[in-house]
Amino acid sequence: MVRDHVHEYRATIDWSGGAAGPVRDYRSYSREYRVAMDGKPDFRASADPHFRGDPALYNPEDMLLISLSACHMLSYLALCARANVEVRGYRDEAEGTMRMLDGALRFADVLLRPRVTVAPGTDHDKAKALHGDAHHLCFIANSVNFPVRNDPEIVEG
């Protein structure tokens, strides 16, 4: 919903792990849950395997990294469209690092490594510079309290 530049989102998180039994101790309960949003397919998720989650399911840490990468990509593509930079491919091999900081486990850093394929004859400096602008536009990166860096590569194809 959009009102005066206010964007609202709603999600329902339903702990589906209860079918495997109640929470009685840290080792035995299921970490699986279901995510639902109106008009979109539901999906199953879990905790990170380090926290006894199912490694076959997405976890909150995965989704944060995906959100940062996707937001940067979408911001970048919009800027390229406005700047007449023809993008033919985009692939990001993003990495995030969590560690203990100030007594709490938290993300310390995310590195986005977009490899952007542009049309032959494209100004590579211009295409690369738009990543800086995309970083400043990315509202997910603007919402986190750790560095989100990017190391783009521009290739023709």
Rank of each mutant, 00 (worst) to 15 (best):
M1N: 11
D4G: 09
H5K: 15
V6R: 07
E8I: 05
A11G: 03
S16A: 14
G18W: 11
A20D: 14
A20I: 04
R24A: 15
D25K: 14
Y26D: 11
R27K: 15
S28E: 13
S30G: 06
R31L: 13
R34H: 10
R34L: 09
R34S: 11
A36G: 13
D38C: 12
K40C: 05
P41F: 04
A45E: 01
A45Q: 04
D48Q: 13
R52H: 15
L57A: 02
N59G: 09
P60F: 08
L68G: 04
L68Q: 01
S69M: 10
A70D: 03
C71N: 06
C71G: 07
H72A: 03
L74I: 15
S75M: 05
L77M: 15
A78Q: 03
L79S: 03
N84G: 08
V85S: 00
G89W: 09
D92M: 00
E93L: 12
M98S: 12
M98E: 06
R99K: 15
M100W: 11
R106H: 10
A108D: 12
A108S: 13
D109C: 05
D109Q: 06
V110K: 00
L112I: 05
R113M: 10
P114H: 06
R115P: 06
V116F: 02
V118K: 00
V118T: 01
A119M: 10
G121L: 07
G121V: 09
G121F: 14
T122N: 05
T122C: 01
D123I: 05
A127Q: 01
A127M: 04
K128R: 14
A129V: 09
L130V: 04
H131M: 12
G132C: 03
A134C: 07
H135P: 09
L137V: 02
C138H: 00
C138A: 11
I140A: 11
N142G: 08
S143D: 03
S143W: 03
R149E: 12
P152L: 11
P152Y: 03
E153N: 10
I154T: 04
E156H: 12
G157A: 09
